[in-house]
Amino acid sequence: MKNPQFNYHRPGSLSEALALLDEHGDEAKVLAGGQSLLPVMALRLGRPEHLVDIGALAGLSNITAGPQGTTIQALVRHAAAERSTDIATHAPLVSAAMPHVGHRAIRTRGTVCGSIAHADPAAEMPAVCLAVDATMVAESVAGTREIVATDFFEGYLTTALRPNEILTEVRFPAWSATAGGTVVEISRRHGDYALLGLACLLDVTEGLIANAALSFFGAGGTPIRVAEAEQTLIGRPPNDETFAAAAKAVTEHLEPGSDIHASTNYRRHIAGVLTRRGLAEATSKIGVPA
């Protein structure tokens, strides 16, 4: 289990990095934290011809968070996001996801944007992005474009990012003061990829749910929002009965896969359980920073 050969590039600037990607196209891979890419390479399941190591680039490690929204740049590690009180205040769903991402030694190296760009369907961050309608900022030599989460996650480990683009930042919209959110999941062992998980939020005004998001991971090739279940929540009070109705809608509409760890029926069942648990927890977090 040793990495295959590759041409190693350590660009000195983002523009150099983008030029390299433009030159090598889909023969190149961006190396940031490497926590997803390197095991794939060691197992020789992936063998990029060119590796563009952006880890040392300056100016890509900033977190900007405020009432207008939160921006996390390409080289912000999970550990930094986990520790950020600004993120806890202004993008609490991101903070809620962090403890679930692997183990600490993984979080100290892995990057938030890397996790999003890798788009593992069982990972937390893509589902969080989908839940809050995050915007992915992709840069290439041709310029910058913004991709909304609903367009970004296209399939299993596949995103709208083009081979010559780097996900330079992810932007989370302003967090409503009346919203609460959480990330809940079931995994075989602590720290494993989830068998199935849920990033959810509720916005409650005058005792009724005004807005809701139920974004599942581990339920298909991409993170999945269950609009039918979200609709059942709107205009209802946040209570067990409401949540049970949403859970029922979730189990009716979700069609997760099966593998050696869990069956489709199991995943569908716990999707309902997590809907109830997640919504109750999200409600309890309204007005409480993560």
């Binding site: 075989r188 760890h261 869990a262 029926n265 199991y266 069942h269």
Partner: peptide, 16 residues
């Protein structure tokens, strides 16, 4: 006895 099997044995879910 992984969790999915436990729920099958308990009659909570059906096997696929």
């Amino acid at each position: 006895l992984p969790p999915a099997r436990i729920l099958e044995l308990a009659g909570v879910i059906e096997p696929d």
